[in-house]
């Protein structure tokens, strides 16, 4: 995977926000997951969503997918209210080990992304070529016909990304795509997403626990914590002062040459 030179955001003709949340709140009964969230995501922007389990990171993705309604506020994709099955949004789900007996090849999974929603027995013109194109774009051509369950985690993630790109989305939502991958595969997946957003202007929202693999490419960080939500650049958000405030417990952020370490969180029940 070669990284292309960074392109200025201004190259993208449509400068309106891909995703916009205004004064958005989400409650489950008495539980207030997050409140008064404002977010404007530009085309090609790479946003990392961080925070402990149960704070509402995956719920945020569900809101953007139109599967969960906001308690208050507005959420729009490309200037229109969110809706289920919006073709402008691609989704890479949390990694589940796929059984080798699932009767699926990478080719089949990507094909579902292309025409899996269509009713009736008719053929979809051009679907095969489209699948080949998508597999090639993520570098999965060589294992396109192997049983999906026998692929490595990194290979499965590439196939998942190919599937999510089937509708040529303007926004890619990734739920923990780096989970249980080794460092080399993590870097490969991040490089793939980075290239996509630079070459096609696809905005990326990635829910993750691992900040270091994405630190070189991430534009902004949304930290969803038990005591509030904070949006900003990694330098603004990942500081001892901000995280201590968000967790209401002493947290220390240590920067080394190899990345960031967040200390003190192991004492929290969520971790």
């Amino acid at each position: 995977m070669t990284l292309t030179e960074a392109v200025a955001p201004s190259r993208v003709a449509d400068v309106s926000a891909v995703l916009s949340l205004r004064d958005a709140s989400l409650h489950y009964g008495e539980r207030h997951l997050w409140e008064h969230l404002d977010l404007e995501l530009a085309p090609g922007e790479f946003l990392a969503v961080l925070g402990p389990n149960g704070a509402g990171k995956t719920s945020l993705l569900r809101v953007v997918l139109g599967l969960t309604a906001l308690t208050a506020g507005h959420v729009e994709i490309g200037g229109l209210p969110v809706s289920r099955g919006n073709r402008l949004v691609g989704y890479v789900p949390q990694h589940h080990a796929l059984s080798s007996a699932s009767g699926l090849r990478p080719r089949d999974l990507v094909r579902l992304g292309v025409d899996g929603h269509r009713w009736g027995p008719g053929r979809t013109p051009g679907a095969r070529a489209r699948v080949d194109e998508l597999l090639a774009a993520v570098g999965a051509t060589s294992y396109a016909d192997a049983p999906l369950g026998l692929l490595s985690g990194g290979e499965q993630q590439r196939v998942r990304i190919a599937q999510a790109l089937a509708t040529d989305p303007r926004l890619l939502l990734c739920d923990e795509p780096l989970l249980s991958l080794d460092i080399a595969h993590q870097q490969g997946v991040v490089a793939l997403l980075d290239a996509r957003r630079r070459e096609h202007g696809t905005a990326v929202v990635m829910v993750t626990h691992e900040i270091n693999p994405i630190l070189p490419v991430v534009d902004r960080v949304l930290f969803v914590a038990p005591h509030g939500v904070r949006l900003g650049t990694p330098g603004e958000i990942l500081t001892s002062a901000v995280l201590t405030e968000l967790y209401r417990t002493p947290v220390e952020v240590v920067r080394t040459s190899s990345g960031i370490a967040i200390l003190g969180l192991h004492t929290l029940p969520e971790h």
Binding site: R84, V89, L104, G116, H117
Partner: peptide
């Protein structure tokens, strides 16, 4: 079955993404 084949396959093998795609 002929009518629902593709969405049913999607929903059976990949329910998370099928839901996200509006099925």
């Amino acid at each position: 079955m002929a009518l629902i084949w593709r969405p049913l396959t999607f929903a059976s093998v990949d329910p998370d993404v099928a839901v996200a795609r509006g099925i």
